[in-house]
């Protein structure tokens, strides 16, 4: 497989890999590193991936596993670089700006979801994959995915509703 073939193979889903990585790792730099790592892994195994039926699903599974490993190792080292553990309640300028922006709320709410639900919302609501595809990627059955997705959507709606009606988080 030539470089050009490989690039055209990964082109349709490299952004999806990046967005999933960013959803899980939060920081943009971390997500970029993870994406690069995954694309290089694919490149190294380029002879083998031709045999896979669905390279995209395979790559998404790889991304999910890679990012979860990354998070686990970071927690083990007690070194969380992501800014979600930033507990300064004296609203900083950054936070004020984000609070004004209602889309910032959604991103905040999604950060608080459990990892499994984050992945499912990302794959379904943002990347718009079929349930069968998601089931393959995550190695789960469709019912479990629906349950998780429903929970996630309800949580997001609830929190959004609260913010919307009271203006508090």
């Amino acid at each position: 497989m030539k470089q050009a073939d490989f690039v055209s193979l990964i082109m349709p889903f490299k952004d999806k890999v990046f967005r999933l990585a960013k959803r899980l790792l939060v920081s943009r730099e971390e997500a970029e590193d993870a994406t690069q790592e995954i694309l290089l892994k694919l490149w190294k195994n380029k002879e083998k991936i031709v045999e896979y039926k669905n390279v995209e699903a395979f790559s998404m599974t790889m991304t999910k596993n890679f990012c979860l490993d990354r998070l686990k190792s970071k927690q083990a080292q007690n070194l969380k670089i992501v800014h979600s553990n930033y507990t300064d309640n004296n609203s900083s300028l950054q936070k004020q700006l984000e609070a004004r922006d209602s889309m910032g709320w959604v991103s905040k709410i999604m950060e608080d979801l459990p990892e499994q639900q984050k992945i499912i919302v990302q794959l379904r609501d943002i990347e718009q994959y079929d349930f069968s595809e998601i089931a393959k990627m995550l190695d789960m059955n469709e019912t479990a995915i629906r349950v998780n997705l429903s929970r996630a959507r309800k949580t997001i709606r609830q929190k959004l509703n609260n913010t919307h009606s009271y203006g508090v988080k």
Partner: peptide, 19 residues
């Protein structure tokens, strides 16, 4: 109150990997 959610979804769809 549903609006920001759907807007957020369609906006995050546009993010790209540029490296």
């Amino acid at each position: 109150h549903y609006r920001p959610m759907f807007q957020y979804f369609s906006q995050s769809q546009k993010e790209q990997y540029t490296k």
